[in-house]
Amino acid sequence: MKEALGTNTNVLPVKKRSLWSEIWKNRVSYLFISPFYILFLIFGLFPILFSLYLAFHSWTGLGEMKFVGLAQFKYLLTEPDFWHSVGNTFAIWFISTIPMLFFALVIAFLLNLPLLKFRGIYRTLFFVTNVTSIVAVAIIFQSIFNNNYGLVNYFLSLFGVDPVKWLDNSVLVKFVLASMVVWRFTGYNAIIYLAGLQSIPQTLYEAATIDGANRRQTFFHITIPLLRPVILFTVIMTTIGSMQLFTEPQVLLGDSGGVGGAGMTLSLYMYNQAFIQSQFGYASAVSWALFIIIGLFSLINWKFVQRF
């Protein structure tokens, strides 16, 4: 990851000096980035250490903590429900991320076209998906995909097709969840890209057009490469976000993730273990497993995006 970060952005030429004088010289930089680390030390570090401590204990949340060594981790590794939710999480990530980021790019690109009319209104309308209350969204998606009386099944019935059990079927339910994610976050990512597109000078496009490049060529040869830092941002954030996917399955399927836990994601599993089953020690172990998975997976994605 060092390589990736070592971009050629140093304004100040660095001379060989002792480390301490180098640090002293850059004290202003440290000052400017310090608020995050100070807040983290006060509010973030203790919860992390606490959950690490908990992961080696058994604790119902109110009673005494009992030291159990690695028992929680051993339980986790042999627990089918845990691995099941790992699989579910990755499956939903896979079917949601790529369409979502692709649609977002297209929308942002279109919204960034010069002389586009109603730009502000379009922007706002794409954005409403992200502020529509999740309670309403759950009711709506349920109404659309219900097993018996859903809108989709209603339309299918018009063509003589039998109702499809969208929420009971372990494969289809993942697509329903993915569609919820795509629906909620495409506009959000489009707005990130739109902000990113603003950093690309219009003159570059004009020059390319004069050289005879069509829209598709400018998109792939100018827009995408120059947008790379922002794309990297969205890929990492989407990865972290989908690995922590929680709200969608909870509101659509409930705390146990639907029939056979087919919609149980890692975050929902952890929440369920902690706040429904009162297994705080185990839930902490799950959270550390989740943390490691997210870390590794983000690293892979980072390397991947850097390459293309």
Binding site: M1, T9, G44, G295
Partner: peptide, 28 residues
């Protein structure tokens, strides 16, 4: 835009904090 000793380390550790699942730190 500025290079200073430990920059990459500090930045990566900042990124890592985002990967910590938030629900579990509720009680602490």
């Amino acid at each position: 835009k500025f290079k200073f000793p430990g920059r990459n380390f500090l930045f990566v550790s900042l990124l890592i904090t985002m990967m910590i699942p938030s629900q579990i730190s509720f009680i602490p």
